[in-house]
């Protein structure tokens, strides 16, 4: 059962009736609330999305009481380390850089990064046609697809959220080709795409699709090849402070059990309209 409140700092208390006493602790989970469909803020200020429902189910299976707190993306890791909460579920991918400072559970979903552009703009015909290239499995193919896109991207402005795998990707592969503009939230680069301040956005394909499903964005589309592997990491997982193996075990087991009985896939279908769970 989920009780949603909007009191105070827009907290969502996810109460699992039996688990609270058994475990005797409240696990506080941070999310951004601005990365649809992973997590977003619905009209009236409630948090909602794939990870909000996933968190509720994971906590139920792990028999712990959970509380979801909203936290801006650019401070989400420092605040975890500072102990403002115990876990992060905010569409955060496992990367080497992040693993140097925090721990991760096993990943629950994984997807490629893509460009989003205006349908009638110069970038609408980016070559690649939605095909996914993995830098780890087919490096030559990925580099070739990227090179094919470069002439068209030359000199264009691309919006990306600050300190994400997507900004790392642009920095590593397209610096000098495109002008990279970094935003605090993806919603802010969406607004600037709409107002024409930038020519394209680069984010996860499902996040872009989630945005472009809205009527305001009917003239915008995904374009070009999509990329995974290398800087994109090993998938989206729960971020945890280092040195808390018990908590990691709780999340690992809950995610594995949801993967096994198909409920994770069902959630993915509900929020992403496709199965982006990780098959082993």
């Amino acid at each position: 059962m989920r009780i949603v409140t909007t009191l105070g700092a827009a907290l969502i208390a996810v109460a699992a009736a039996t688990g609270a006493l058994a475990q005797g602790r409240t696990v506080r989970i941070a999310t951004e609330g601005a990365y649809a469909p992973y997590n977003f803020t619905a009209p009236g200020g409630k948090l909602d999305g794939f990870e909000i429902e996933l968190a509720a189910e994971l906590c139920k299976r792990a028999k712990v009481t959970c509380e979801i707190v909203q936290q801006d993306w650019d401070g989400i890791i420092p605040a975890l380390q500072a102990g403002k909460y115990d876990a992060i579920m905010a569409g955060m991918n496992i990367t080497e850089k992040r693993e140097a400072v925090i721990d991760f559970s096993i990943p629950y979903v994984q997807e490629a990064g893509s460009f989003g552009v205006a349908k009638d703009g110069p970038l609408a015909k980016l070559p690649g046609d939605g095909q996914v290239f993995n830098f780890d499995k087919d490096n030559a193919g990925a580099v070739k697809a990227l090179e094919a896109m470069k002439p068209m991207l030359k000199g264009k402005t691309v919006g990306v959220q600050v300190s994400t795998i997507h900004s790392t990707f642009l920095d590593k592969y397209l610096k000098g080709t495109v002008e990279i503009r970094e935003y605090k939230t993806t919603e802010q680069h969406d607004l600037d795409l709409l107002s024409g301040r930038i020519d394209a956005i680069f984010a996860s394909a499902s996040a872009i699709r989630g945005t472009f499903d809205k009527p305001d964005f009917k003239d915008y589309t995904l374009a070009g090849a999509r990329f995974s592997g290398d800087v994109f990491g090993r998938g989206v997982a729960v971020g945890l402070r280092k040195g808390e193996p018990a908590l990691k075990k709780l999340f690992d087991e809950a995610i594995a059990s949801m993967n096994a009985d198909g409920s994770l896939k069902a959630l993915s279908m509900k929020w992403f309209k496709s199965d982006i769970t990780i098959k082993s």
Partner: peptide
């Protein structure tokens, strides 16, 4: 607002992000 406390400006940011009507 940058610390995530939902005061007036933070709420406006949340609202304008959600409705795309800044």
């Amino acid at each position: 607002s940058v610390t995530g406390l939902v005061e007036l400006l933070r709420q406006s940011q949340i609202g304008s992000g959600s409705t795309r009507e800044p």
